[in-house]
């Protein structure tokens, strides 16, 4: 699994990392079409969910401390 670089500004939740990974391995890696066809049409939802999780993480940041101004 990917850990984001520690110095970057935003936290990435475990959930976001997992969704990110699933998005990569399911939605990309498109080179070969196998014999067995799967109904992967629903996997776009993974990306929507990923966006939702990322944005939720954003909102969880505490508001800036007014005393610092």
């Amino acid at each position: 699994m990917k850990a984001p670089a520690p110095e970057t500004d935003l936290l990435e939740e475990a959930d976001a990392s997992l969704l990110d990974l699933v998005d990569h391995v399911l939605n990309k890696g498109v080179v070969v079409t196998g014999d067995v066809m799967l109904g992967l049409a629903g996997v776009d939802l993974v990306y929507l969910r990923l966006s939702a999780v990322l944005c939720a993480a954003d909102r969880m940041l505490p508001p800036p401390d007014p005393k610092k101004r």
Partner: peptide, 20 residues
């Protein structure tokens, strides 16, 4: 490495090699 999509399934090695 060229990563394949998750759940790329073939009925046998020959089919997979032929595809590649």
């Amino acid at each position: 490495v060229i990563p394949m999509k998750l759940f790329t399934l073939f009925t046998g090695d020959e089919k997979a090699v032929a595809d590649v």
